[in-house]
């Protein structure tokens, strides 16, 4: 349903073009969930905006994004406006700021429907009510005319989901949808997303820095580091045997997961350093400066994808030598 090939995002700067996201490839089938994981600065959000065609003015995407066979890269703005909201829905990170404070939630949900489907006010309002019930807002009929500030964070994120789903898109992109929420609310929102994907049969791209969120929800996982994918495969395989040193580092920094004793008093490991900014990334393997297993050859060229059993792949030339 969605096929992304060699997608890169670059930005023009006074000192020449700068790559923000490089060489992203993945496929997503309807009814499945792809988790994209990485630290902040790994280019996850930029990737999501590229899929939406909503990059900042100075940024350009190249490569190929095919949605149900239609190429999105290079489409004129007017054509993208007909796709956004209609065939691709997006859920944002901050439910507190992602809704217009001066418009009722009902109007905000109905707006996309009116825009894409030329529905009248009453019909669009009826759809909004239906969606509000569907995302689990109690007494939806009464809440339809509420303003965002009259709702809790979790409820607002449910409204955000209703907005994204309003036109029954084939593809849903959720960029850190639970990061700003309380843990209990996080679980509810993830449950809701899983339910909706199963029910409506759309493809979901779930972006998160939280491996736990990805583990619970995603069928497949793509690990991003410094603008580039470093490991991909089924979530089951990656969570059982993380291959890339960066992915392993992420797991070791997470309490109670594969290879990390969950017991109290255990020290969590950290990955030394931080994600390099675009323009300061090493020329070979992007992770070379922070990797414990780095050798000279790592810096020579970007490592090719190394296949592993079960369709898992990692971009590391030392996979076989790693402990």
């Amino acid at each position: 349903m969605l096929e992304v090939r060699n997608l890169s995002v670059g930005i023009a700067t006074p000192s020449g073009p700068l790559a923000l996201v490089e060489e992203v490839d993945f496929r997503l089938e309807a009814g499945r969930t792809l988790g994209i994981v990485g630290e902040s600065g790994s280019g996850k959000s930029m990737l999501a905006l590229a899929l939406m065609g909503l990059l900042p003015p100075a940024a350009r995407a190249s490569g190929s994004i095919r949605l149900e066979g239609d190429e999105l890269i290079g489409l004129p703005e007017a054509a993208l406006c007909r796709i956004r909201g209609k065939r691709i829905g997006m859920i944002f990170q901050e439910p507190m700021t992602a809704l217009n404070p001066a418009m009722t939630v009902g109007e905000q949900i109905a707006e996309g429907v009116q825009w894409h489907e030329n529905l009248g006010r009453r019909a669009a309002r009826a759809r909004a009510l239906d969606l509000l019930q569907r995302v689990g807002i109690p007494e939806a009929a009464r809440r339809l005319d509420d303003y965002p500030h009259q709702m809790s964070g979790g409820q607002r994120q449910r409204v955000g989901i209703a907005i994204a789903l309003a036109c029954r898109p084939r593809l849903l992109i959720a960029d850190e949808p639970t990061t700003a929420l309380d843990v209990t609310v996080q679980a509810q929102i993830l449950d809701l997303l899983r339910e909706l994907v199963a029910e409506m049969g759309m493809g979901l791209i779930l972006i998160s820095h939280d491996l736990g969120v990805i583990a619970e929800t995603a069928d497949d996982t793509l690990v991003m580091y410094a603008g580039m994918p470093v490991e991909t495969g089924s979530s089951a395989a990656i969570f059982a045997r993380p291959a890339h040193p960066y992915t392993r580092g992420l797991f070791l920094a997470m309490p109670g997961h594969a290879g990390v004793p969950a017991g109290a008093g255990q020290r969590l490991q950290t990955i030394p350093g931080s994600v390099p900014e675009p323009g300061r990334r090493p020329s070979g393997c992007r992770f070379a400066d922070r990797c414990a297993y780095v050798i000279e050859a790592c810096r020579a060229a970007v490592p090719p994808w190394e296949p592993l059993p079960g369709g898992q792949q990692a971009r590391c030339i030392r996979l076989e030598e790693l402990p």
Partner: peptide
Amino acid sequence: GEDFVRTARAKGLTRRVALRRH
């Protein structure tokens, strides 16, 4: 620059309509 303008654009609204309505 507010997030909700991006939300409006993600619904498919054109720049001009998002400006007027949101």
